[in-house]
Design a binder for these strands. Structure first.
Length: 272
RNA sequence: CUCGUUGUCGACA
């Protein structure tokens, strides 16, 4: 087993799917498929190599699944934005008598956010309170984001205001939420408050604001933010520009999108 | 480091 695990670990790190599959075939041939340690590593390798399908095939056949494995698989589905699968896996897990822990809960909230499933999200919130996860900053960040994505900024603020510690993710989630619903004033106000509190906005914070502004027809304000971003010492890359370009383009502001697109090239940033 | 979880725009199917 140690040999297989080392190989799988290495191929996972290298994203070497073909090699990983060869190891898998060898495992099947030598009858080690029932080994839980190897099974975990096979799932891990397939996830790292980007093959959820293969990961799932191994996962489904395993006889024992620990909390670590469940959260790894559910997290992979959340990352891939397969929201329904996240919830289906959660229900399967609970049916097997496993309790959702503080690691898996953020992935579930991410799925609720992706589905704009407010009622589901509220249920998870209740579960968080009942299980004493409310002091976990990652869980709280995911809660703020879920409420924000569901357009319920009042709920998002309730959670946000109660947080004893706020990091760049917390601030970005709430600011992005206001930007998304078109409340640019509140987004800007919170942005100032963020800097005042000593948390420095990173590229994602700026991108989230610019995207929200652009999507709500405030392309000029978004471009202004791009300038402020530069002044703060961050270099807008193609992703920052795309936040504006696609935000405008996908919401009926074609001419503004084109304008931003041209400005991007004048700034020396190549489109991707 | 056997390193599973949260924020932006995408890419991958």
């Amino acid at each position: 087993p140690s040999s297989y695990v080392s190989l799988l670990q290495e191929f996972a790190k290298k994203r070497a799917l073909a090699e990983g599959k060869q190891v898998h075939a060898h495992v099947l041939k030598t009858g080690y498929e029932g080994n839980g340690w190897i099974g975990n590593k096979l799932v891990y390798m397939y996830i790292k190599c980007g093959s959820l399908k293969d990961a799932r095939q191994v996962f489904d056949k395993m006889s024992q699944r620990n909390a670590f494995l469940w959260s790894m698989v559910v997290g992979a589905y959340a990352r891939a934005r397969f929201w329904e699968d996240v919830l289906n896996l959660l229900h399967w897990m609970q049916g097997e008598g496993m309790r959702a822990d503080d690691i898996i809960v953020p992935s579930v909230l991410k799925a609720c956010a992706g589905l704009t499933a407010l009622e589901q999200g509220k249920e998870v919130h209740g579960y968080i309170v009942r299980n004493g996860f409310e002091l976990d900053i990652v869980v709280n960040n995911a809660l703020v984001d879920m409420y924000a994505k569901c357009g319920r900024l009042q709920y998002a603020c309730q959670v946000f205001d109660k947080m004893t510690e706020k990091d760049v993710v917390s601030w970005t989630a709430i600011i992005g939420g206001y930007a998304q619903i078109g409340d640019s004033g509140e987004a800007l106000r919170l942005h100032s408050e963020m800097e005042f509190s000593g948390v420095k906005p990173d590229a994602i914070t700026w991108n989230a604001m610019m995207a929200g502004f652009a999507q709500n027809g405030q392309g000029d304000e978004a471009l202004e933010l791009l300038n402020r971003m530069q002044l703060s010492g961050l270099k807008p890359d193609v992703n920052s520009w795309n936040a504006i370009v696609t935000g405008c383009a996908q919401n009926g502001y074609a001419e503004k999108a084109l304008e931003a697109f041209c400005q991007m090239q004048l700034a020396g940033v190549r489109p991707n």
